[in-house]
């Protein structure tokens, strides 16, 4: 288990992190979301040891993280960086060696990953000759090639085409299924919702919500009741505390709280009920509410 505990960091007068903490289980995919400047990158840099926290700690399996642990991590920084003039295969292989792999293992892992990420045709090209999306694939390969024990990826999906997004999603699912904790940040909340087991929402350097996605969506007071009624007279829902929108002869009523049965009876009296049920908020809705 990877634990981030009460991280604090300031840059001059600016407080970037003000007590950030969360935990990621082995085999869990953790989505890290938050507005621009909320502190995601800063947190991940501290996890990777390229930035020092003012206080707080990152722990793995119950003990403080060491340099040796980090050497087995895989990291994709927000600001991508590769040797522009080095070719794809050499580059991936070099990084796997830096992460401690033997020469033969490095070569095999590099070949496999190049294949998997669809870079076979570009394996001998210099990085500078690749399109941005392909450079990103190489960046990803560099983060993955040494079969890391923990994956920390800062906005890995930005700049990828839909096919590449799917390919990356598959790779990440694979890795997490093999027992690796995966943390990634993203602004694509639908993607996070689809991929992640749990999420953490950070706002202005503080965690405002975190936990399994299902729990967050189900939790008390978050779900709304949605009723669709056909042929009702205008003003039928005036007595209820909800909002009505009209759409092609249908009234859609959304109510945040109230007595379900009472609302159903009112709706049945007013017209033909086509839909009635509680709707869980999307991650985007939870996010907006949490960050507001």
């Amino acid at each position: 288990m990877l634990e981030v505990q009460d991280l604090r960091k300031r840059f001059g007068d600016k407080v970037a992190l003000d007590g950030v903490g969360f935990a990621v289980q082995p085999g869990e995919m953790f989505g890290f979301v938050g507005a621009n400047g909320a502190g995601k990158t800063t947190t991940m840099r501290i996890v990777m040891g390229v930035l020092q926290a003012d206080s707080g700690e990152v722990r793995i399996e119950g003990r403080a993280l060491t340099g040796e642990d980090r050497r087995r991590f895989g990291y994709m920084p927000e600001e991508r960086g590769l040797y522009q003039k080095m070719n794809v295969a050499d580059q991936i292989e070099y990084f796997s060696r830096l992460h401690g792999m033997s020469a033969t293992a490095a070569r095999a892992a590099t070949a496999e990953l190049i294949e998997r990420l669809g870079l076979t045709e570009r394996r001998a090209s210099a990085v500078e000759a690749l399109s941005l999306g392909n450079q990103q694939r190489v960046q990803l390969a560099v983060a993955l090639v040494h079969s890391p024990s923990v994956l920390v990826l800062d906005e890995p999906f930005s700049g990828l085409d839909p096919l590449a997004v799917d390919a990356l999603a598959e790779v990440l699912k694979d890795r997490s299924a093999s027992g690796v904790p995966v943390i990634f940040s993203s602004h694509q909340l639908d993607l996070v919702e689809r991929l992640c087991d749990s999420v953490g929402i950070i706002s202005a350097g503080r965690m405002v919500a975190s936990g399994p996605v299902d729990e967050l969506r189900d939790s008390e007071g978050r779900s709304v009741l949605k009723v669709v009624v056909r042929g009702a007279a205008p003003g039928w829902a005036d007595g209820l505390r909800g909002q009505v929108t009209t759409d092609g002869g249908r009234d859609v009523l959304t109510v945040e709280d109230g007595d379900d049965q009472e609302i159903l009876r009112t709706a049945v009296r007013a017209g033909t009920v086509e839909q009635f049920g509680r709707q869980r908020p999307t991650l985007a809705e939870i996010f907006r509410e949490a960050v507001a």
């Binding site: 980090r70 991590f73 994709m76 920084p77 960086g81 830096l98 992460h99 560099v142």
Partner: peptide
């Protein structure tokens, strides 16, 4: 070169 291309960030995640 390593600093401006930001590659130093992944390098330093792997080496001292």
């Amino acid at each position: 070169e390593e600093k401006s291309s930001r590659i130093v960030e992944i390098l330093l995640a792997a080496v001292r």
